[in-house]
Write a protein that binds this DNA or RNA. Structure first.
Length: 594
RNA sequence: GGGGGCGUAGCUCAGUUUGGUUAGAGCACUCGACUGUCACUCGAGAGGUCGCGGGUUCGAGCCCCGUCGCUCCCGCCA
């Protein structure tokens, strides 16, 4: 299937079964070993590598001369015979290691300049600096590791399409040039030439379009959607990224979650990993209570427990003040933590403070002794209530949950890292449900959507407490693996009146303003909308996890740096003044001279 | 926007602590030798804007100030 008029076989596909065949190969010279008569070339293509042997007894003089001179990374065509290697010449590290190709002729069709980065690296040799790898991406992507990553990415994409298409989902496309959205991340803007002063935005997600597909009656939609957000980058965040975007009609939460679990199972299976379903479910409230975050890593315990009852009666200023202010005392028990030094625990306190806690309460139990600043305040009842095992360390935060949860989350994660509790081979999938509908801006008190403005509030909450939106749960859910969010979604508001109220709660009370910004959605909902909902998965992140790659950049062919530059192509770049003029754009700040 | 780390040969790094002769090593590269290597081996050679700019000093890879790039993190990312 990969045979062409140039070649018969891929290098990496050759096996002992090919012995005796005359083959023609095309590939890149990975390495060469000139023994001064015999020349060995490792020839590489996307399937792998095979050893080519050039023997003056078989090949003509010209071929021998070419073999001696050809530089690494040059593209050559080899015609020769597949032969078994001598018993003591087998290379067990190579899939093709039992055979080699005895060359009859060798031709360089794409001579390579000396590569500025090595493609063939010795074992244990460090990678070149990432800046150079990105600048010379055409070389870096020749590395078998990155080729494997992108090959896996391809397979995951195909598996996604197969899975969803088999379940009657239609792959429908949505515009890349679209309308700026007022909420969420910063938009990438594209000036309009035809309409002076007006701009398109690149989509942060195809959210409204996919809901309109439901309004149209397409019933089940998916897309491998490119999304764009103009925010600062991280190792696991690129300005342009790929989502598996899904929406379906006449569904409830459980319909979407069952589909999502099946898709995850299917994708992990494509990577050779069996994943049992359904996934564990946990409410947002329970996740925050026991783990302090909405995407807990369940590979280890160290669960947060309420210790308010133990501290309430004590004459201890720190906890007394916190409780009087309506807060609680919560903490985790770290087995073996009593052995940690003052400095080690101080480092944990710094993390807790960084996450918003006033401080970190600490209590060690060694034998029957209790140590630490808290110890002398404890009475027998408090000791009994804490039930601290011998040799362990209790770390607590007194205060409101909004401070203690993130602080204990941070401390819990650091303790787990120190103790090596997170088994990298384990996979703890989790579905978090019942997210709050809104969160308050701590400064302004304004409501903001936790998921997005199109999410349906929990119907019971909406009916029971119509005037207390801050207490509403949303019909929104996340899929989490080992503390990483894989995807999230919600059931949407399909009632235009409810949607309009949501906008009002989010500060867009003016009906005309609503129509201007979201008219195309509201009109659609008024035209007869089925109940609908969906989910979106971060595809790059999934590919990264399944490839075992440390960075998103290792599963994206041409990624951006953390400064949002494309080093290979050289984007972004300045443009000629006449181009700007045509777009009716004037640049206020000239870029630094380069 | 803020903080940490890094920047010396094509690549990976040492040298910076304590400023002082001609800035080193491995790999890659060039030339030569070698018929079973597979990170071949051996010999010889070439290769430097010490990121960039300024300052201190008799003298700066090394000290100071600024700046650029990469990276990790905080803010940000509905």
């Amino acid at each position: 299937m990969t045979a062409t008029s140039y070649r018969t076989t891929l290098c990496g596909d050759l096996r002992p079964g090919h012995v005796g065949q005359r083959v023609t190969l095309g590939g890149w010279v990975h390495r060469s070993r000139d023994l001064g008569g015999l020349v060995f070339l490792d020839l590489r293509d996307r399937a792998g590598m095979v050893q080519v042997k050039v023997d003056p007894a078989v090949a003509d003089a010209a071929t021998v001369q070419v073999a001696e001179k050809v530089g690494v990374e040059s593209v050559v065509l080899v015609e020769g015979d597949v032969v078994a290697r001598p018993a003591d010449g087998v290379n067990p590290e190579l899939a093709t290691g039992a055979i080699e190709v005895l060359a009859r002729s060798l031709r360089v069709v794409g001579p390579a300049a000396t590569p500025v980065l090595p493609v063939a690296r010795g074992k244990g040799t460090p990678l070149p600096a990432e800046e150079l790898r990105l600048r010379h991406r055409y070389l870096d992507l020749r590395r078998p590791e990155l080729q494997q990553n992108l090959l896996l990415r391809h397979r995951l994409l195909q598996a996604t399409r197969r899975y969803l298409s088999d379940r009657a989902f239609l792959e429908l496309e949505t515009p890349i040039l679209t309308k700026p959205t007022p909420e969420g991340a910063r938009d990438f803007l594209v000036p309009s030439r035809v309409h002076p002063g007006e701009f398109y935005a690149l989509p942060q997600s195809p959210q409204i379009y996919k809901q309109l597909f439901m309004v149209c009656g397409f019933d089940r939609y998916f897309q491998v959607a490119r999304c764009f957000r103009d925010e600062d980058l991280r190792a696991d965040r690129q300005p342009e990224f790929t989502q598996i975007d899904i929406e379906a009609s006449f569904v409830r939460q459980d319909d979407i979650l069952a589909l999502a679990e099946g898709l995850v199972q299917h994708l992990w299976a494509e990577a050779g990993i069996a994943v049992p379903t359904p996934f564990r479910r946990m409410t947002y409230a329970a996740a925050m209570e026991h783990y302090g975050c909405d995407r807990p890593d369940l590979r280890y315990g160290l669960e947060i427990a309420d210790a308010t009852a133990a501290f309430a009666p004590l004459d201890f200023g720190v906890t007394r003040a916190a409780l009087a202010a309506g807060g609680r005392v919560r903490g985790i028990v770290v087995p073996g933590g009593a052995a940690w030094s003052r400095k080690q625990v101080d480092e944990l306190e710094a993390l807790a403070k960084g996450a918003g806690a006033g401080g970190l309460l600490r209590l060690k139990r060694v034998g029957s002794e209790y140590e630490g600043p808290v110890a002398r305040f404890l009475d027998d009842a408090a000791r009994a209530a804490l039930a601290l095992p011998d040799g362990s360390l209790w770390l607590g935060v007194a205060g409101p949950d909004r401070a203690s949860s993130p602080a204990l989350d941070r401390v819990r994660q650091e303790c787990a890292a120190r103790l090596g509790l997170a088994d990298p081979a384990r996979r703890e999938f989790l579905v978090v449900v019942d997210f709050p509908m809104f969160e308050r801006d701590p400064d302004t008190g304004a409501l903001a959507a936790v998921h997005h403005p199109f999410t349906s509030p929990n119907p019971d909450d909406y009916a029971a407490r119509p005037d207390d939106p801050a207490s509403w749960r949303a019909v929104a859910y996340d899929v989490v693996l080992n503390g990483t969010e894989l995807g999230g979604g919600s059931i949407r508001t399909s009632d235009p009146a409810v949607q309009s109220r949501m906008f009002a709660l989010l500060g867009i009370g003016d009906v005309a303003e609503q129509e201007r910004r979201f008219g195309f959605l509201l009109e659609g909902l008024r035209a007869g909308a089925p109940p609908h909902g969906g989910i979106a998965f971060g595809f790059d992140r999934i590919a990264m996890l399944l490839a075992g790659a440390p960075s998103l950049r290792d599963v994206i062919a041409f990624p951006k740096t953390t400064a949002a530059r494309a080093l290979f192509e050289g984007a972004p770049s300045t443009v000629p003044p006449e181009d700007l003029e045509a777009l009716h754009v004037r640049v206020a700040a000239e870029p630094p001279g380069r």
